[in-house]
């Protein structure tokens, strides 16, 4: 019997786009309302299993080989720094990682060593180190926009897509760190042991991206 391929998909922002893309590539996935209740989806036709995971857990599932493939944003991939193959830029979930702060202020604040609040502590500290700037990174797990508003931090480093959330909170984008898209990643062992199957999927998705 052929072994099923297991694909980890990120819940939230990217999921709908990722699922739409997989449908276009020929995989049969149930309707979205059904998806929202499930954690594991079987596609008998293409012999694949999809698991729905928290985005930052996707690289972990894939690194350990619990999933063969995964779809995850470049932001999470850089932050998690896991030992996986990055096979394909799916060009979905496009956004950017940026520095933002309160409108009308400069990011070099009154503090000698500015405080930066972020979910992406590794990426942010790498970025500032490369710039030769000393900063104090404060790792937060959500609602990062609050930090500058209540004086916890001078700036934030976060994902910006439309900029609406920032605007609603009186923040402005000060500097773009890098553009972000979602990637197809693969486990090292799976990439060797199931090379033909994985290459097939990569080819199908590449075709969807081209059109």
């Amino acid at each position: 019997m052929k072994e099923k391929l297991i694909v980890a998909l990120p819940k939230g922002r990217i999921m709908d786009e990722a699922i739409e893309m997989l449908r276009q590539a020929g995989f049969t996935l149930p309707q979205n309302d059904e998806l929202s209740r499930k954690l594991i989806i079987e596609d008998e036709f293409s012999q694949m299993t999809f698991i729905l995971a928290k985005p930052s857990d996707v690289p972990i599932y894939v690194e350990y080989g619990a999933a063969d493939l995964g779809v995850v944003g470049k932001d999470v991939l850089l932050e998690e720094n896991r030992d996986v193959y990055e096979l394909l830029d799916l060009q979905i979930g496009a956004c950017r990682l940026s520095i933002a702060g309160i409108a009308g202020t400069d990011k070099s604040s009154t503090r000698i060593v500015p405080r930066i609040a972020t979910k992406f502590s590794r990426v942010a500290s790498d970025f500032f180190r490369r710039q030769g700037k000393q900063v104090e990174i404060i790792k937060l797990n959500g609602s990062i926009e609050i930090a500058p508003l209540i004086g916890l931090a001078d700036c934030i480093v976060d994902i910006v897509s439309t900029g609406r959330t920032l605007k609603e909170n009186g923040l402005v984008e000060l500097e773009q760190i890098m553009p972000i898209t979602s990637r197809l990643i693969a486990n090292r062992m799976s990439y060797r042991m199931k090379h033909v199957d994985i290459t097939n999927i990569v080819d199908k998705l590449e075709n969807v991206i081209k059109n």
């Binding site: 072994e3 690194e63 350990y64 080989g65 030992d83 486990n187 090292r188 062992m189 799976s190 060797r192 042991m193």
Partner: peptide, 11 residues
């Protein structure tokens, strides 16, 4: 060379 075998995610 590297050798891989399921279910281990590393060589």
């Amino acid at each position: 060379f590297e050798v891989y075998a399921a279910p281990v995610g590393f060589p």
